[in-house]
Amino acid sequence: MTQPLLEVRDLRVDFRGEMGTVSAVSGISFTVQKGETLVIVGESGSGKSVTSLAVMGLIPQPPGRIAGGEILFHARDGQTHDLAKADARTMQHLRGAEIAMIFQEPMTALNPVYTIGAQIVETIRLHEPLSRRAARLRAIDMLALLGVPEPQRRFDAYPHELSGGLRQRAMIAMALACSPSLLIADEPTTALDVTVQAQILDMIARLQKELSMGVIFITHNLGVAAEIADRVLVMYAGQTVEAAPAADIFQDPRMPYTRGLLKSIPRLGMDRDAGPLPTIPGTVPNLGEMPRGCAFHPRCTHALPDPCMARRPDLEPVTERHVVRCARWRDIAGQPA
């Protein structure tokens, strides 16, 4: 295989708080290839957003700290940078130009006192030696590419003058203005209506092909994951609990947590007279109060005192491209979740 665009090895991120130091991400590894979409799925507190912020070098320090591991990014000039240790200058050079990020709430990324055009132009000129005029044309092209109607007029609009969907497009235009090779999208469609979400997902998929970007897409929505993922990584309590090509995750999930999640989602056209929705009992654990052994065992119907409560399970290969963190995955393979 060619060298991956991004390779994260055993990343650990700690946060210091009132309860002492907690690990938000405790040893996660993954790769993203050029042109590939990796979807990271998890609930609140799973560490999915912290992982993406670490890649962007945006962990607030303090209270946060990258406590270990490597984030190897293969830049266009052929150099490999370890983003876990990169200095501010290197990060500034890479952010925007080679690695871009889009967020759930576009207003966190857009400045309310500048027009969206001015902000896109600023991003372009920060990284590329273009004239104001050329940058303006590029920005209008980007807005048009993202399906913003009347891009010339919208170039001069302030963020508050746009609808949620248009603001999201403007933010994506800004993120993609320098054709980054890696795009990190943290719940970019979660606050949007389903019809707008469908438009944005289509657009991200199209642009990814055109620009052959690697994409890390973070979501709690398994439906969205199924729409766009090449591979899916499921996080729980700061760790990878299962990772596989999308088809394997949805058709042959092995981790009881993944199975439980997939079963508990109401789907269109399901028979509600068949009884209550299957649920995962209990709640997501607090980072400060991690259970011993497998972090999922208090909520798992397959958990046994030994090994589940005794030891933290390792990630084990199910197939060459499918890994699962469950000590009992072989025993429960044929059983219902």
């Binding site: 109607p149 019809t195 469908a198 439906g223 994951a225 088809a247 949805f250 058709q251 269109l268």
Partner: peptide, 25 residues
């Protein structure tokens, strides 16, 4: 019809046709 077709479903093998609405509200 369009609203239903836009709902993302957790099934990677799905082949339902998607109606992407044009324009803005």
């Amino acid at each position: 019809e369009a609203l239903l077709s836009a709902v993302p479903e957790p099934d990677a093998s799905r082949t339902r046709k998607r109606i992407v609405l044009q324009g803005e509200l």
